[in-house]
Amino acid sequence: MDNKYLIRESIYKKIFSYAFLILLILFAVFPCVWMVLTSIKPAGEIFTSPPRLLTENPTFANYIKVIFHSNIPRAFLNSVLVTVITTILTLIVSILAGFGLARSKFKSLRILSVGILFSQLLPSIVIVLPLYMVFSSLGLLDTYASLIIANLSIVIPMGVFMLKSYFKNVPVELEESAKIDGCTGLKALFIIVMPVAIPGVIAVSIYAFLNTWQQFLYALNFTHSSDVKTLPIALLEFRQQFKVDWGSMMSASVVISFPVLMVFFLCNKYFVKGVADGSVKG
């Protein structure tokens, strides 16, 4: 009697669960699919009502336009440079700060760590104008430096927060025994503690990477020449520069998303683990 009830219930459960997941996947994925489908449509077929799903004449004209006749490649390089440098600097600063905060017995430093989380609260829009003025008087406008500095402010607080909780979970005994062997301070940090906290480090890098790669507001206001512009802004220009907006924009989107998706697919195991661990323990 119990068994029948359980089986019936579990069949409903299964059907509902899978159906729900399939719908969810469609919801999550359809924009990407639509993006790819639009990017291979020839110009005339994009503005149709009702919109056509598939095209009979797939073309790569949009891609050729985007890769060879636009600012996208340069913007790509800019994005890569800014993102990589920001990520590296973030790691250095966050590891140090996270470690310092995790190990310190100073009360005021503990308050600082809460304060760091508070800086997450800061609406970026509020500091755009003052930063603009400062960068302008320092001559840093329209340079990589302005983007890197501004991006660091967004990413470092979270990085410190995540790493602090990681380092806290590394038992102090490890360092104690290292000290006995004569290994102290920074050396101890890098040789002994870090390897244990690697998932956290990876999580912070990926967080910094993803965030900086798509950073929009600062790039919008601090850069204007195509030498320094990053991808999100270059993408928006397709709405001005090119005649057939959507086709090329969709192709550009595919080009831009590609590296991010690759990174994600290859590293997702670490990423999932790292982010989840970091916040659950935090």
Binding site: I67, F68, H69, S70, N71, I72, P73, R74, F76, L77, V80, S226, P259, M262, V263, L266, C267
Partner: peptide
């Protein structure tokens, strides 16, 4: 290892691409 080599390859590819983009520009 695979991830980092793919990433390096992509980076190189992008640099080449943007160099071509520069010439085009």
């Amino acid at each position: 290892k695979m991830a980092s080599s793919v990433l390096t390859l992509m980076l190189v590819f992008c640099i080449i691409l943007s160099a071509c983009g520069q010439k085009e520009n």
